[in-house]
Simulated scan of single mutants.
Amino acid sequence: MADTVELRGLPFPLSASHADVFRHDDQAGLVTATAPGHTDFYVNPAGADSADAETVVNAPTLLGLPPAGDFQFSARITVDFRSQYDAGVLMVWFDERTWGKFCFEFSPAGEPMVVSVVTRGVSDDANAFTVADRSIWLRVSRIDRVYAYHASTDGTTWQLIRVFTLGDQVSEHRIGFEAQSPTGDGCTVTFTDIRFVPDRLAELRDGS
């Protein structure tokens, strides 16, 4: 895969952080990623002496700079979950200490789960709900300087998961895809139904 990628339906190019991780098929309208083992984006809020998860910022990303203004960016994410915290992710990125992850992740209980992580210096971590299937639709919307995360089990009805900001420098925020396998030896993530709509979200709470 070339370092710079253009996907049908996305009005901006994407750049891959790692060679040979992401593949795309424009005819099929999909992106696949094979996450290497022990990869993640997480800045431990408890510091280096904590017994909790260590700080890791090495997961592969495929990111690009969207056009100015409001938008809705979504995809259906399918993960061949193997190990705890394996995930496919939609990402908003500014720098290594300022980013937001919207994850379809394998929970410690062995269940697929919608999870969000927002990092502003250090990371938080919020679980939303478990999913019976191994696929979910996730959407990132920008409204002025605010981002909203919505999830859907059918691609039609959306549930608000989170609203947050990464600061005023929205013109420098990149968006795209990430794949991770923090505790395992890798996983494969497939992104389909990829859409970018340069429209303002009409209703923040119900996602319509």
Rank of each mutant, 00 (worst) to 15 (best):
A19G: 09
A19K: 11
D20E: 11
D20H: 13
D20F: 09
V21C: 01
V21I: 10
F22Q: 00
F22C: 05
H24Y: 14
D25Q: 03
D25H: 13
D26P: 11
Q27K: 12
Q27I: 15
L30E: 15
V31H: 00
T32D: 05
A33C: 06
T34K: 13
T34D: 09
T34E: 08
A35R: 01
A35T: 04
A35S: 09
G37S: 07
T39V: 02
T39G: 02
D40H: 00
D40S: 01
D40R: 03
D40K: 01
D40I: 00
D40N: 03
D40C: 10
F41P: 07
F41Y: 15
Y42N: 09
V43G: 08
N44Y: 02
A46D: 14
A46Q: 12
A46Y: 12
G47S: 05
A48F: 10
S50N: 02
D52R: 11
A53L: 13
A53E: 14
T55G: 02
T55V: 07
V56L: 11
V56Y: 03
V56I: 12
V57T: 15
V57K: 12
N58Q: 02
N58D: 03
N58K: 05
N58V: 00
A59C: 04
P60A: 07
P60T: 01
T61N: 07
L62D: 06
L62P: 03
L63P: 03
L63T: 08
L63M: 09
L63F: 01
L65I: 01
L65Y: 02
L65R: 10
P66I: 06
P67E: 05
A68I: 11
A68Y: 09
G69N: 06
D70K: 13
D70L: 10
D70R: 10
Q72C: 10
Q72Y: 11
Q72F: 08
F73I: 04
S74A: 14
A75T: 02
A75L: 00
I77H: 04
I77K: 06
I77L: 10
D80K: 04
F81W: 09
S83H: 13
S83F: 14
Q84H: 12
Y85G: 06
D86H: 05
A87Y: 01
G88I: 00
V89E: 14
L90F: 05
L90Q: 01
M91G: 05
V92Q: 09
V92M: 13
W93R: 11
F94C: 14
F94P: 05
F94D: 15
F94L: 10
D95F: 08
D95Y: 07
E96H: 14
E96P: 08
E96Y: 14
E96M: 10
R97C: 08
R97N: 11
